Simulated assay, not measured.
Amino acid sequence: MRPLLLAVLACPFALPAAAQQVPQTAQLPSGLNTGGTSYLDGFSRTTPGWAVIPYLRFSRLDAMKDANGDDSPAFNRPRINSTLLLTQIAYATDYHPFGGVLGFNALVPLVNLDASFAANSPVRLRDNGFGVGDVTFGPYLQMLPVMRQGRPVFVQRFELDLIAPVGKFDRNLDLNQGSGYWSVTPNWAFTVLPTPNWEISARLNYIYNFRADKAANPPPIPGFVFRNGKAGDAGWINFATSYSVAPTVRLGINGYYLQQFRDNRTNGIRVADSKQRQFYLGPGGSWQIDQNNILFVNFYMPVEVENAAAGNNLNFQFTHVF
């Protein structure tokens, strides 16, 4: 059983309003599934029943990148540490539309934020401590594997999720667990097995963000009154490949690439040069403990980042099937 969607803390941050003609009041949600999926991602349960997947992710972000991918001079010695404990509950039904298995899943994150900056930093961001993040939920359709010579060679899954803005949110703070607005995120996951021991997996994601009527600590600009904000839509791909080095152990590489398609908007006005880009790579592995339990470990390092905080992050995922 593989995860259906992971809401992980991506921690994207805007440049200070003084550097922009229009202040930025909305940005991509912090709970995007960037790097949360791993090896054999196209597989999940095809018989009726429940699965519980807890995730533990540590992120240490130590750079704030501008639109050119350079360190922003507005921040001196940034340190943004986050710990995410996510619980996913998935249920596969006995309905088989279009030859697949219909299922439902929900993800509830608990997030701890800890930010610090140098005392002389021109801009210092304040965090919201510990709290519940936005909840993700929705249906999925798991297709049955395509078999050749008695073994699977291709499997895929389609999913449509909503992100509900129920997470902890303080208008007076900069870094929150919740985004403050609804989003819809369809995705397509698949796994190809060229050989019995080698697999290639990917998940294509898209997000559309609805308008926000609240903002995190909008800048005190004379004459500016916040009415609404809207994060631009984005697409990204999670990709991984692994090789079975032992009957229960896989080693491989993993990464993700995110590109925001449209700039963010404030009061209906486009915020120039606010689109995010993130490219991360790293090693990983998995251990099949037994038939019902599997552990995944993935490490990600930044390769290219624009308009976002950057740093290393480590993800642990444990899947238990009832």
Rank of each mutant, 00 (worst) to 15 (best):
A310K: 02
D161P: 00
G167M: 00
T87P: 02
D71I: 00
F154R: 04
L84T: 14
Q24C: 07
R211W: 00
A90H: 02
R262V: 03
R270T: 15
D233V: 06
R211M: 02
F261V: 14
P302D: 05
Q142T: 03
P109Q: 08
V303Y: 05
R60D: 05
L113W: 04
V321A: 03
G36R: 01
L56H: 13
R77Q: 15
Q24P: 00
R124Y: 03
A119Y: 08
Q260T: 14
G133Y: 03
I89M: 13
F226G: 01
A309C: 08
F322R: 06
E304S: 14
G49E: 02
S30R: 11
F43K: 01
F279D: 12
L193W: 02
A272N: 15
N81M: 09
R270E: 15
L251S: 09
K168F: 01
R227T: 15
L125K: 05
N197L: 11
A310Y: 00
P54L: 10
V155A: 01
N105P: 00
V123G: 04
L110C: 08
R211I: 03
W287N: 07
D134P: 04
Y256D: 13
V271M: 12
W198Q: 06
N315R: 10
A63K: 08
A90I: 09
N172C: 00
Q24D: 06
N187E: 11
T47A: 04
S179K: 05
A308I: 07
L32K: 01
S274Q: 12
V111L: 15
S44I: 04
L113N: 05
V166I: 13
W188C: 03
G282W: 04
W50V: 08
V297L: 13
F13V: 10
V135N: 06
A234M: 11
G235D: 05
T319Q: 08
N292I: 10
W188R: 00
I269H: 13
M1R: 06
D263R: 07
A164V: 10
Q291W: 09
Y300Q: 07
Y280A: 04
N76R: 11
V101Y: 01
R151T: 06
R60S: 12
G223L: 09
G35N: 04
A14G: 14
S244C: 10
A106N: 03
H320K: 02
G223C: 03
V8N: 09
N176W: 09
V225G: 00
T47P: 01
